[in-house]
Every structure is written in structure tokens, then in C-alpha cells.
Simulated scan of single mutants.
Amino acid sequence: MKLESILLPGVDPTRPLVIAGPCSAETEEQVMETAKELAADGIKIMRAGIWKPRTKPGGFEGIGSEGLQWLKRVKQETGMYVSTEVATQKHVYEALKYGVDLLWIGARTTANPFAVQEIAEALQGVDIPVLVKNPVNPDLELWIGALERLSNVGLTRIGAIHRGFSSFDKKIYRNLPQWHIPIELKRRYPDLPIICDPSHIGGKRDLIQPLSQQAMDLGFEGLIIETHCNPDCAWSDAAQQVTPPRLKEILANLVIRDGNKQTTEDLTALRRQIDELDDQLLELIAKRMRISQEIGTFKKEHGMTIVQTDRYDEILSKRIAQATEMKMNPEFMRVILEAIHEESVRVQLDILNK
């Protein structure tokens, strides 16, 4: 992908990019009140959902094109840039007609290659920043595919938004961060700007501060945070929106680390230890897999089934208990053990089927 800056003129390139505003544009008064508060606090880019894809029919699905007139007024009266989500070719044409400065593609749309291609073709020849949220499911290739579709029609001002991934097993987050996925995206495309959407990851306003800090610690280029003049009365996603004063506090308390600082000798030594330990881990895992192969051969010769559930349960419970005693995260250990077990089963099935 050929990439250029997504920054708009007048936006400070030395600070994290911040996009803020309500989940949905509800009324002209709500949009203007929120915009004026944000502008007074120095926010340069306002967001507002004009069209809202809802999980089920019957909910508020956005005010529609009428709200674009309100965003145009925001630009005229505050000097802010304005941004919104687009999901169809018609949305693109409408947003451009009213002078929207930045567009993003939502998670549900990213999951649909036909829809992304339609949007890309509608944007061909347009010089505007376009951000792509990760798809609902944790599929890095699908995310990259959406970015490539935009690049293939000549767009260069492209960025990504990490908004977390849906999971049937809900825990503290609305959408699981799975930070390793955007980190891998950045590894493959080092020049690709990635900003974080802590509102959709957390689903609760109390989680926005810590998630924003984590994103900064991981080197994300910015944040998109849902901000509403009266969030408790919001027509959509009320629980995850903050007030402009609270947003100001969140941003003021962020610790921004310099990722370009020269690595110290102490850090180099610690990293060398990590490398040595990783080598040892790989050797141990390889040895374990060789033993799994021997077990697979034994089971084949004696007509035994591959999976012995009692044994697996014993390993899980014992090792997780040991990890807990060693002050390790038991859920982390569960994930590691399940991955090792899955690979062991695969190895033994290969032997059985030879």
C-alpha cells in the first residue's frame, strides 16, 4: 500500500490524533452543544454517526442526511473538521456533498468485501482520509483486504481503527481488545496509522481511560472517543460515551511515551534475556511435541482414541493451579495449554491417518 499522512491541516502532528463526538447525531442542538464544548477544549476533529447499523431492527438507525447539515454548521461555526461512518456508495456521495473531511468504514461493513469495494470505487479520485475499523470477528486478513481495496483504487490517506472483536463469551469488555492483532497489522505495515476506539472496546465509560493509556503505551497514533453533551440521555450507546469535560481529563492524564528514544543498555540486556528464554521455550515445546508423536504412535499400535479427556482435564487443572501459585494469570495459562493440546491432537491425528 502506498501511504500518506491522514492528518488534516492544522492538526498537531506531535500529539496523538483525537477524534471525538457523539455516537449518533440526534438533534441539531445536541450536535452543536457538543461541538462547541469540544472546540473550546482544543479538539480539532468531531465525529458523529449519521447512519447507524444496528444489530436488530427497531432501534435508532441514525438521523440520516439531515444530520450532515448540522455537521456543516459545526465546520462553519467552530472551524472543526467533521467525520462520519459510511457503509454504502450513497453514504459516500452524501457525505462528500456536505463537505465531510474524514470518513471511516465500520466493523460490520469491513466484514463485507462487496460493500468495501463499492465504497472504494465511490471514493476513487477523492483526496480524503479514510479509516477502516477492524471486522467484527478477529480476522486480520479480512481487515487487510479492506485496506487493500481502498489502496487499489488509488487512495493513499488510509488508516486503521482498532475497536476490538466480538465474542460470545462476554467479560469486562464489550469487544475483546486482542491487542496482538493490531500489533501484527502494524508489523506488516509499519507506516499504517492505527488509532484506537476505546469506547467500543470497553463499552463502559469507566474503561475508556485505561484503554486509552494502553493504546498509547502500544504506540497507537490516536484515539476516537465517543463524547456527548448529555451521555446518559444518548439515543445509542449511552453507557460508553463521556462528557467533554471528562474527555478533557482523560486526555490530560495520558502519558505519551517517546517510541523513538534510544534503547538503554539495561533494556538491551533484558531483551537479550528474553531472547535466550524464548530459545529455551522453543526447544522445550519441540521436545514436548516429539513426545506427543511417540504417544500418538503408541495409541495407534494399541487401538486407543486420540483424546483422553480425563488426562486433559488433569493437565489443565494441575498446570493452571501451578501457574496461579507462581503469580501468573490463570487465563493466560489456559490459552497456552489449550493451544499446546490442540497441536498435540493434530500431530497424533497425522500419525493415526498415515
Rank of each mutant, 00 (worst) to 15 (best):
N329P: 10
L207N: 01
D313S: 14
P190G: 14
D275T: 09
E294M: 14
L155I: 08
R319L: 11
L349R: 14
P135H: 03
E276Q: 13
Q322T: 05
R319D: 09
W70T: 02
D279K: 11
A269P: 00
C229P: 06
P177V: 10
K287E: 15
K327H: 13
R174D: 01
M304L: 15
K44D: 04
E29W: 06
K300M: 09
K186E: 11
T297F: 12
Q76C: 00
E61H: 07
D310R: 13
I43Q: 02
E121Q: 15
Q214Y: 13
Q240E: 03
L192E: 13
M304C: 10
L150G: 05
Q178W: 08
A269M: 14
V116S: 05
T55N: 09
E33W: 08
R272F: 09
E221C: 06
I285Y: 11
L155G: 10
L211I: 13
Q293L: 13
D41F: 07
P182W: 06
V255P: 00
L176E: 12
K299S: 04
R15K: 15
L96R: 07
W104A: 06
A87R: 01
I105G: 10
E314R: 13
T324K: 14
L277N: 07
L223D: 00
T14H: 14
E26D: 12
L7S: 12
L270W: 11
Q308S: 15
P138V: 03
K287A: 15
R346C: 02
E28A: 01
L103D: 01
R188C: 09
Q262K: 11
E77Y: 04
L211M: 12
F220L: 02
F60W: 12
T88H: 14
G64N: 13
P13G: 11
